[in-house]
Nucleic acid binder design. Structure first.
Length: 424
RNA sequence: GGAGAGAUGUCCGAGUGGUCGAAGGAGCCGGACUCGAAAUCCGGUGUAGUGCUAUGCAUUACCGAGGGUUCGAAUCCCUCUCUCUCCGCCA
């Protein structure tokens, strides 16, 4: 969440930001509730001070009458306090919920716009792959080669689940290791994280585990959820902690399964592996000093480029429009790889995403560092995809397909695969 | 899964319902001593709020988390989380 003390001092900026993000947040009501809360807080604290004073008076030996009078006074204070406290708790809870709906501030250079198409393509790498034959999509390629099986995935687990088989398995493992090696070269500490996290962590990262539009699977009666990304488990790792300044930046990379409900996510553009309920992903995560987060955001993006350039896949980088930013993100860059089987003649499809969430998540999760003046301050937190295995496989199968139905393995992956082609 | 023990500040650790934001130690910061250092001695040293006559003063909350009992809770009761020990089961 943002710093609610800034609701008044940066009111116009916050209001404008909500408009730019096309969000439905009633800022004036939140400010009014904040004032109500402050008034009730003062009242509560004054009563508590009276209660404490009354209790102090009763420490020593007292004659029975004085003692009785003090107890009566204490009881009266207690009754009044419990009423005021109840009112305060109600408004406090409401205000906290409302404050959480306010999005993060936005980087001044982020393109302003409502939708996906308002996002700005800031870089193109390589030429979209062309074939002298009619290109197939990855579903057809994968099923023909018997490396992907959607039918049995649906039978056993349901719609949008799949099996990976045969050399497809080796391809996925090769990709994992290939990406891991590149990320490690840049000084990240590797993790395999839990695939489950507590709701409070989800909330702190900015995911809403509840509600009809939630993309999160919750596990009935446990207070926990299946993670949609290792961003959650890596970001929760230091929750509640004060990190010594000299430990920063902390760079982590985590492999996890990712589970997403994707309610209403069917259709042409999300077929096959592109949008599924479960996939594996290697995620990068950085905790750093506030003044360094823009720099590290660029570093994550450049590592993502290194991974996709190494695979020799054409892609573009998109600077995400304000209306498409998640609430925690201050700025977000996506890499969209060329996917020849997407749409009629191929299209770019998202394969990575990196966000600078500044101190928005750190404030909710209470993650701080001790500054030179001895005061704890909130760290900045950034995340980025190293490789989302399912989507990377879409891009590889479609770009490296051959007319005979076989798929050439990208040269960078051959040492990891132990073969250079998948054919029938 | 069963039985038991525990969770206190940066760390270790004491704590009989009121004199406890919390003994004692370590660490850290400042000072004295020293040519300098070590040792020693003296002083200081949590976090998050709120109010105001604002580099300060006052006040509230925080002893794993959340409830409860009480005039008053680190201390008593309940629930939960986590850690440790033993048993069972198991890749």
């Amino acid at each position: 969440m943002i710093d609610t003390r800034e609701l008044k001092t940066r009111y116009d900026e916050i209001k404008k930001n909500i408009e730019n993000r096309f969000m439905n947040v009633d800022l004036d009501k939140i400010v009014a509730d904040q004032e109500k809360r402050a008034a009730l807080m003062q009242e509560t604290e004054a009563l508590r001070a009276k209660r404490n004073e009354n209790a102090q008076k009763m420490k020593g030996k007292l004659d029975p009458d004085t003692r009785k009078a003090l107890i009566e006074e204490g009881k009266a204070i207690k009754d009044e306090l419990s009423k005021v406290e109840a009112e305060y708790n109600e408004i406090d809870k409401l205000f906290a919920e409302e404050a959480r709906t306010i999005p993060n501030y936005t980087h001044p250079d982020a393109p302003i716009g409502k939708e996906d198409k308002d996002s700005l393509a800031v870089k193109f790498y390589g030429e979209p792959t062309k074939f002298p034959f009619k290109a197939k999509d990855h579903v057809q390629i994968g099923e023909d080669l018997d490396i992907l099986d959607f039918d049995n995935g649906a039978k056993v687990a349901g719609q949008k689940f799949y099996y990976i088989k045969n050399k497809g398995v080796i391809l996925q493992m090769a990709l994992e290791r290939y990406a891991m090696d590149i990320v490690l070269k840049h000084g990240f500490t590797p993790f395999i994280t839990p695939d489950i996290a507590k709701e409070e962590i989800l909330n702190g990262i900015g995911f809403n585990p509840r509600g009809a539009e939630s993309n999160i699977y919750t596990i009935e009666g446990t207070g926990t959820c299946l993670v949609g990304t290792a961003e959650i488990t890596l970001g929760g790792y230091y929750s509640g902690e004060i990190i010594p300044k000299d430990k920063l930046p902390i760079k982590m990379t985590g492999l996890s399964h990712c589970f997403r409900r994707e309610a209403g996510g069917a259709g042409q553009y999300s077929k096959g592996l592109y949008r599924v309920h479960q996939f594996s992903k290697l995620e990068m995560f950085i905790y750093c000093l506030p003044e360094e987060s823009d720099k590290f955001h660029q570093e994550i993006l450049s590592i993502e480029e290194e991974i996709f350039q190494g695979l020799e896949l054409p892609y573009r980088i998109v600077d995400t429009a304000t209306g498409d930013l998640g609430a925690p993100a201050y700025r977000k860059f996506d890499i969209e790889a060329w996917m020849p089987g997407r749409g009629d003649e191929g299209e770019y499809g998202e394969v990575t995403s990196t966000s600078n969430c500044t101190d928005y998540q750190a404030r909710s999760l209470n993650i701080r560092y001790r500054d030179d003046d001895g005061k704890p301050k909130f760290v900045h937190m950034l995340n980025g995809t190293a490789v989302a295995l399912s989507r990377a496989i879409v891009a590889i199968l479609e770009n490296y397909q051959n007319e005979d139905g076989s798929v050439t393995i990208p040269p960078a992956l051959v040492p990891y695969c132990g073969f250079d082609r998948i054919s029938k």
